[in-house]
Design a protein around this nucleic acid. Sequence first.
DNA 1: GCCCAGGAGTGTG
DNA 2: CACACTCATGGG
Length: 290
Amino acid sequence: MTTTTSMHLEPLDLAQTLGCGQTFRWRPLSDGSWRGPLKNQLVTLTKSGPRLHIASLPGGPQVKKLVSEYLRADDNVSAIQQSLAKRDARIARGILGLRGLRIVKTDEWECLISFALATYANIPRISRMIDTLARRYGQRISKDSYTFPTLERMKRVSLEDLSRCGLGYRARYIQAICQQLTLDDLEELKRLPYDELRDELLELPGVGDKVADCVALFGFGKLESFPIDVWMGRALRRLYGKEGSYRKLAEFARERFGEYAGYAQEYLYYNERAHASSGSCLFSEERRNR
DNA sequence: GCCCAGGAGTGTG
DNA sequence: CACACTCATGGG
């Protein structure tokens, strides 16, 4: 049965938050709502003024809490934006038009696999790869909606089977991570501060600097993390004249943006993509109508 | 067809 | 430390 509820949450722009590459399983509906699987539920979010309406299937009493945590309702986003704007004039400009962009707090395990898949692929393809895994190894929620596969399930998947999921060279990394990682490991990682977490994540096959930082930021909620991909490289060069190794750029960003560097990174990332394509939505019209 | 993609691993200088 | 090369493949 479907459960509906609502909550106050500001600022929040669903398209900016759910469609910008932090997370890959939400889809826009024709009425501006967004739908995606959260844990074992299929959730539909609709923003109406300051209120966020939540519908979920099969639903349950904890849906509001689930959404609150996912959208980091406890973050004082306006205060974070003010703080960043005070530190840096370019960020201040970058925040304009993105006031509803929030960092999300995704599931640690799902985030790890998602960004391990995200290497050298574009966002539509990343979404497709994840959908394929969910359809094959997840549990069905509704007609065409599946939960993200559990680690325990993925441990029983052979490399041969995984290689037929359209993951390319990433299949063996995913398989190796699933073999190496335990549920206890995941629980231990949750207790670590950013630096130690990062070091541990880097031990996993297929996880390098950028993936580790994405997983730390979006999966483990480390807001000081500042992932640097090709788009961030361009942004840092274009706006700050900075080039060089990952370490050097990350060091610059951390010093420049401080404890909320992750938010700064999202504003820069979104702006750089918009600057390049002039279409800020990462889901093209063709895809939206599929 | 062509180019590029929210990179990582490995080898070399 | 820096760089070069390879890895598979689909979306635009």
